[in-house]
Amino acid sequence: MIELKGVSKTYRNAGKPAVDNLTLQVRPGEIYGFLGPNGAGKTTTIKMMIGLLTPDAGSVTVAGLDLRQDPLAVKARLGFVPDSPVLYQRMSGRRFLSFIADAFSVPATERGGMDTLAGEFGLSEVLDAPLSSYSHGMKQKVSIVAALLHRPEVYILDEPIQGLDPHAAFVLKEKLKKLCEEGKTVFFSTHIMEVAERLCHRVGIINHGHLIAEGPLSDLRIAAGTDDSTLEKLFLELTDDMAATH
């Protein structure tokens, strides 16, 4: 599971905090959708959850381990997909995935999953070509396979659907559902409301660094006083209200 308690972060040379006193919890077996307009603090939150940024205040716990106390044990239990793929361009796809498997000490007997996953995402044909020759979508697929490869307990995905073809998007969504059934924890940010609506058990909406709404979609509808509102409408209402108060 993932737990953030009173997490805050202010960047140097920035007046306002990017994330302000954020508290949230994602339980095992749950898919949590993290929504918010551009610049709301989604990526900063995610960077603090995976150890790319140190929070100024508060604590981050992943799989029962404090990120500050035991960062390597936390990273070993995490699968992360960044919003834009970060890869070593000179490596081939296979070499890169082997590099990830080596870094996460995946035993040789369990590495067959690499080809299976690559096949599922339509990468088999291109796996031995240098990553520099891949399209954005193919790089995103490699990033996703790299996150799934070591079968972690917790998955954190930043805009994972972005750039994927419909087939790969479908495969990913099915994978996430399956992982959730296996009791894994999935946290992902997205701008695609339809995906969040269909896939997530709970959603959290962040704006100006604050969590302005959180819960299952049905609860959010009740809170908003509408029965038939879509997540998109709710999102627009909530973020517009917030913008007006700012």
Partner: peptide, 26 residues
């Protein structure tokens, strides 16, 4: 290059130190 390249076998596992060393070269 992409199309031609399918079908190779997986690389042998390396220790984290060795794999980071080769990352430096890459």
């Amino acid at each position: 290059t992409k199309r031609r390249s399918g079908g190779r076998k997986a690389f042998k596992p390396r220790s984290p130190l060795k794999t980071l060393f080769f990352r430096e070269w890459s």
